[in-house]
Structure formats: structure tokens, C-alpha cells
Computed example of a mutant assay.
Amino acid sequence: MDTVAQLTIVRHGQSAANVAFADAHARGVAEHGLTGRDADVELSPLGWHQATQLGRWLAAQPVDERPEHVVCSPYLRARQTWTQAADTAAALGATLPPADVDDRLVDRLMGDLELMTPLMIAERFPAEAARLAADGLYAYQPPGGETFDHVAARVRAALADLNTGHAGRRVWVVAHDAVVVAARHILEGLPFVDLDAIVATTPIANTSLTRYAHADGQLGLVEFAATAHLTGEDRHAPLSR
């Protein structure tokens, strides 16, 4: 086998930034009250609960279905998600592997626009807001930041190393929605415009699971943005293309 046996990508639990951005949008204001770096944004109370639910669900899985290797984004919200899940599982008698950190699994780098709401960008950098509208979300490169092609390049390298170093094993990646999008682009050859339409109908929810399994020499999508582990209900998303 020249790939991992199974690849599961987990988006981190709800973060303080997720809450602040949603609140600012709902109120129609630019400011969200956050300070500091995106990399240091913590989980929200709901995010901690979601990570706990993930750990409970993992503890209930058969041993031969739990992850054998875990790699995590260095961002605090991703590391907190896995630490809480693993600690919860351990308290229930299930041992999960500690996460290795891979800097290539960070969220999309927004450079000078880091942690800015759309209204903040429009007010402070109107030329960038116009360029974003013209280029589109995936092709736009903020000053000092990345396009999605840049994200895909680093995620591609990280996945290649996982396939080389952990072929035949169940591997989990704890990261960000941008990493999930990049993985689908890489593994399925989906153009970003198609992925944009998919995510519009099936958002990549916090702590959702996107899973691939090895078959016929390659990794095939099994489920996308699944949240049944958070609710106890059968709510796996359809395999949209």
C-alpha cells in the first residue's frame, strides 16, 4: 500500500474568532473586539464541548477504527481540539495518540488582512476589497498572504509525507476548513469553483469529519463534513461533487 489506509481531516472546534466574526456580521458592524494573532485564537465554550464530544465518540469506537497517527496544525484552536478529545477519551479508558505538529497545516494565511472582517477590509483597505471581488475568494492573494493554490501546495506536501511515512495506517489531521478544501482539490482533482459550490450547500462545520479510505491504489472520499459524532444522529453529508 502506497497511501495511508484511511485519512480523516477534522476541522477544529468553534473558536472565539468564529463567534466574534458571526456576531459582527449579524450586527452589521466591522469591529469584532479580537486582539492578537490568528494562531493564538482559542476555542469558544462550544468549541471545548465539541472537542469533548469528539473524544467521547472516539472512545466508543472499536480499537481498530481509532486513529493510529495524528498530525495537527500548530494553531492553538486546533491543538486544543485534539488535546481535549484525547484527554476525554483517556478518561473513558481509550488511549489516543498524541498529535505531531506540522506547520504546513495552518489556516490560509491572510497577511495584512489577518483577523479582519469583510467590513473592516472594505473600510481600511478598499482597494483590496475591490481586488478580492474581482479575483474571487480562491485566486485572491492578500498582501503578505496566500491564494488557495499556495495552501494546496503546502497541504499536498504534507499529505505526501503522511503517505510515505504512514502508509497502511489510519491517520487523522486536525486543522482548518481551508485544509479540507485543499485536500479535496488535491485528492479528487476538484476545481476550486466546484468546491465553492459544494461548501455553499454543505459547510465545513466546526469539528466535522472529512474521511478518505484506500481503495484500488488511491484514497476515495467516504464522507464529507460529517457531524453525526456530535449529535449521535446519522447526519453524514452526501458525497457532493
Rank of each mutant, 00 (worst) to 15 (best):
H176V: 05
A205M: 08
L195R: 13
I186M: 03
A178S: 07
P203H: 03
V193N: 04
D194T: 05
A183W: 05
I198H: 14
R156P: 00
A182R: 13
V174I: 13
A197C: 02
V174N: 09
T210G: 08
T164P: 08
T210A: 07
R184S: 04
V155F: 15
N206W: 04
R154L: 00
I186S: 03
L187E: 02
A183C: 01
Y212M: 06
A153T: 01
E188T: 00
E188Q: 04
H166A: 01
R184W: 01
R169N: 02
A213W: 06
A197V: 03
L190I: 03
A153H: 02
T210E: 09
H185Q: 04
L209C: 08
A167F: 06
S208Y: 00
T210W: 05
G168K: 06
A157V: 13
W172Q: 06
T164S: 14
A178V: 08
T207W: 13
D177N: 11
A213Y: 07
L209F: 04
A178C: 04
T207M: 08
D194I: 02
L162S: 01
V199A: 14
V173E: 02
T210Y: 06
T207C: 12
W172M: 06
A197K: 08
V171R: 03
H176Q: 03
D194N: 03
L195T: 10
F192L: 09
V193A: 08
G168F: 09
A200K: 15
I204D: 12
N163K: 09
V179E: 12
V173D: 08
V199M: 15
V155C: 11
L187Y: 04
N206E: 09
V199W: 14
A205V: 07
R170I: 06
A157N: 13
R169Y: 03
V173A: 01
R156F: 00
R170E: 10
A182Q: 09
A178H: 08
P191M: 11
A197P: 01
R170K: 13
T201V: 05
A153D: 07
H214W: 13
T210M: 04
R170D: 12
A215G: 14
A152E: 05
V151E: 09
I186Q: 11
A160D: 13
